[in-house]
Computed example of a mutant assay.
Amino acid sequence: MDYDLAVIGTGTAAMVCAMRVAKAGKSVAVIDEKPFGGTCALRGCDPKKMLVAGVEVIDAKRRMAPHGVVGDVRIDWPELIDFKRSFTDPVPEKHEQRYKEGGIATLHGTASFSGPNRLRVGERELTASNFLIATGAKPRRLDIPGEEHLVDNEDFLSLAVLPKRIVLVGGGYIAAEFAHIAARAGAKVTVVQRGPRMLTGFEPELVEWLMDAFDRIGVYVETGLNVAAIEQRGDDYVVHAEGDGRAMQFDADLVVHAAGRVPALDRLDLDAAGIATENGRLSLNDFLQSESNSAVYAAGDAASNGPMLTPVSSHDAKVVAANLIEGNHKKPD
């Protein structure tokens, strides 16, 4: 075998597991088709916090305006994006260097299984005793006409110029966060949610506070509507939605996918390794080990049946690392 462990992905789960297993004296390789760092560091939590830091100043000024704080403040979006990039741009090189210092091989390219213990990365094929799928998540397919016009979280967090009219499809926490950022930065924002309210997994009282805040900053929320199609008209878009006997249209310069995420597994050719799935998710046992190929584990968003959060990813990775190091798992047949 080329390695004791091959890790697909370089996000939180991947790094935590790879570092622990390598420290235990095992040979490890990590593979990623994107810059090293994963969603949280590059395309999610951390860059979002950089933008939030800017728009919080707008809100603080509003709250303090009656108490001696005077003058106008506004967001210069390109400069705010440059501020974000000052944090995110150095991440891939730092992560790759950290792997190399830990004695971990780093490979760049799209990984796909070519057998139960084989992985293809570009033109190279490698073997490993065990594999960790830590490929994160991607926006779920909506299967509607014009779906290709949607942008995802990565696109939104990299916008060079903030569009004037933004429609967010979906009403979860990504929609809530992006709506606040965009509205406080000066965009006209509309949220289209199929459920009866936004953030259905949160306490209703908290959601009411959010709706009050949306009213103050001019975010328009339309619930009980399913987006049926996205139509491009020149440089603009029209979002067609329907529900409860209503048919509505929303004009936009940008339409953002915020309607849920699913494990990113489609490029891995799981069938070639005999890795079973159910309803688009990996079939795993209590050790986060594939029920059909005991050489394969998963962690983080790729393994998730619950919240796709960084602390969950870290916990999963620690579980997998302990199982690999201590042997507390089903052995290969």
Rank of each mutant, 00 (worst) to 15 (best):
G170S: 08
A183Y: 00
S158I: 12
W209G: 12
Y237N: 09
L270S: 07
A176S: 10
A247R: 15
E222T: 14
L282Q: 00
G171V: 08
A298G: 13
A176F: 00
A160V: 13
G171R: 04
D301F: 05
V255M: 00
N226E: 11
E177N: 02
A179I: 03
A258P: 04
F250P: 02
E208Y: 14
L265Y: 00
V219Y: 04
G201P: 02
A185V: 05
A299R: 02
I275S: 00
F178P: 05
R216L: 15
E291F: 08
V161D: 14
W209A: 13
H180W: 01
A179D: 03
L206H: 07
R261M: 09
W209K: 15
H240S: 11
V161W: 06
H240D: 09
T277G: 00
V161E: 15
A213H: 13
E278V: 13
L288R: 06
A276N: 08
H257F: 02
D244S: 15
E291Q: 12
R261L: 10
L199W: 04
R165T: 06
D215K: 14
M211L: 13
A264R: 13
A241E: 03
K188D: 13
R216Y: 11
A182T: 06
E177C: 03
S158K: 12
D215S: 15
A179P: 02
A213F: 09
D244F: 09
Y173H: 08
H180L: 10
S294M: 06
Y220D: 14
T277A: 01
D235Q: 14
A299V: 10
A241M: 09
N226Y: 01
A299C: 04
Q193H: 09
V161G: 04
A295K: 11
R281N: 12
R216V: 15
D244Q: 13
G234N: 10
R197K: 09
L254Q: 12
I275R: 03
A259M: 05
V189A: 03
R184V: 11
I230M: 10
A252D: 10
L284F: 03
V262G: 00
N226I: 03
F214P: 01
D244C: 06
R194Y: 08
Y173R: 00
L206I: 14
A247E: 14
A183D: 01
R184L: 15
K188F: 08
A252I: 11
A299E: 00
G274T: 07
V192W: 08
A273F: 01
G195C: 10
G234W: 12
L254C: 13
T223Q: 06
L282R: 00
S158Y: 09
G300D: 01
A264G: 08
Q193R: 05
D236L: 13
I230K: 00
H240R: 14
D235W: 03
